[in-house]
Simulated scan of single mutants.
Amino acid sequence: MTAIMLDEHDIRGAVTMPEAIAAVRRGFADLADGAFEMPVRTVLDDGGFLVMPVHHRPTSSAVTKFLSLNFDRAPAIDGTVVWSEAHSTDRVVAHAGTVTALRTGAAVGAATDLLADPGADELVLIGAGGQAPDQVRAVHAVRPLRRLTVVATAPERARALVERLRPELDGVRLETAADARAAVGGAPIVCCATTSTVPLFTADDLPERVHVNAIGAFRPTMRELPDDLLAGADVVIDEREAALEESGEVVHALEAGAITGADLTELGPALAKGGGFGPRTVFKSVGVAIQDWAVAHLLAERVLR
């Protein structure tokens, strides 16, 4: 038996963001085709610990991710992603925080490529935590940016993120802001990556044509987007059962009567549809295990073969 241990440096060196986006896109297509066995993740201590298993039937491979989350520490996300195959005793054990950031960004990249205007070249990112850099990398991979504005309640965190990303964003105008409602007013793409429990802006704050990604809220008590935005947009989710159980935005909008279940489209079928969406689109992700499988599959192909 061989167990290959991969840290952040190993993972970043093995998988680029465009490769992760392509892999996650294929994973969602397989999910829509019924190729995965994927229970809703197990949540312990009100989100303090998460366990996410998934089995890919065509390859007889499985991934189990264990996370501990504490947003008062650094890093906030820690744990392991374990890749295994039925025909082999070899394993890949990867740093879960890195895989999570990469695969979450990749899903946003796939959704943005599908839903954002082809010429969109400005991004407002709300949040400057551990998930934030890969949100920018993913959007930039599918919609090369001319301008990036980072909004954070702590200005020093926004400035630090901008400086961290500067070497990767040559020629991009980089700015920071403190007022999310004012910042989103002219943005064709908005990414929300916070732990907020209340909406970050209103639908009226947004331009008429906009694509919004929201990945921060992963429990029913958390919420980044307002009901009126979901009511007036084409809403794409990662997976229905997970969204109905875990997305505070979806749960709140359904309970308020702002939307119905019929207003939600899963990403896999949306990718197959390929177009025909309205001027306002939302991708709401709570994160599902097939995303981890997609990145782990790439890692396994590169370190075990």
Rank of each mutant, 00 (worst) to 15 (best):
V184T: 03
R159N: 08
E175K: 09
E168M: 09
A154D: 15
S196P: 08
A160G: 03
L169H: 09
L145E: 09
R157N: 05
A178M: 08
L165W: 10
L169I: 14
V190S: 01
A180E: 07
A158L: 08
L145P: 10
P144Q: 10
T197Y: 01
P167D: 05
G171T: 14
A187Y: 06
P144G: 09
E156G: 06
A177W: 05
P167F: 03
D170L: 15
T194Y: 10
A182V: 03
P188H: 04
A187V: 11
A160L: 01
A183T: 02
A180V: 05
D179F: 10
A154W: 13
T176M: 01
S196M: 12
T195S: 14
C192F: 05
R164Y: 11
G171R: 12
R146K: 14
R164E: 15
L169D: 10
A187C: 12
A158Q: 09
T149S: 09
R173V: 13
R173Y: 09
R164W: 07
A154T: 15
T176V: 10
R173I: 11
A193N: 08
A158C: 09
T176E: 03
G171F: 12
I189H: 00
R166G: 04
R147D: 04
G186V: 00
L148A: 11
C191K: 01
C191D: 06
L165K: 14
P167L: 09
V172E: 04
V151M: 04
E168P: 10
V150R: 00
A187H: 07
I189R: 01
A160V: 06
T149A: 03
V162E: 00
D179A: 05
L145A: 07
